[in-house]
């Protein structure tokens, strides 16, 4: 039983680490701020969930589990909020997505006429 828990927990930790690496690759390779935020925030919360769950299965049950739960709750609360605020600030300061159609409420044209993406055609 304990052996099975060890392997499941270790497997979850490795899976979380792989998700983190994938997210980092996305942050490195994606074309603009918004896609990068998407990659980072999703894999941060997902990777953290998997890894902390794995650690909870590995460790002794008790105060440590409670602390792991606290760390998880904290990351689940702050990471999406920070990503949201970041995307909001980036959009407000004039960055426009490079991929896909979008329309800003109150503006008539749906373009990417932004200082940041000038000279780059919409994909």
């Amino acid at each position: 039983m304990a052996d099975a828990l060890f392997w499941i927990g270790g497997g979850l930790i490795v899976a979380g680490a792989m998700l983190s690496v994938l997210g980092a690759a996305g942050v490195l390779r994606f074309p603009d701020v918004y896609t990068r935020i998407h990659a980072a925030s999703l894999t941060d919360t997902g990777g953290a969930t998997l890894m902390l769950l794995g650690m909870g299965l590995l460790g002794p049950f008790g105060l440590i589990t409670l602390k792991l739960l606290l760390v998880w709750a904290f990351i689940m609360l702050t990471s999406p909020a920070a990503a949201n605020a970041l995307a909001n600030a980036a959009f407000g300061s004039g960055h426009r997505p490079r991929i896909g159609n979008f329309q800003i409420m109150g503006e008539d044209k749906a373009t990417d006429a932004a200082p940041e993406s000038a000279g780059k055609e919409r994909a």
Binding site: V27, L28, R36
Partner: peptide
């Protein structure tokens, strides 16, 4: 790498934030 390359400041903040989350997991591990 992303934090050093940028290009915009928001990319850097994003990289720093994500780096911090991974540090949390690293320390727990």
């Amino acid at each position: 790498v992303r934090a050093v390359l940028g290009p915009s400041h928001y990319d850097r903040i994003l990289a720093a934030n994500s780096f911090g989350t991974k540090t949390v997991l690293l320390i727990a591990l």
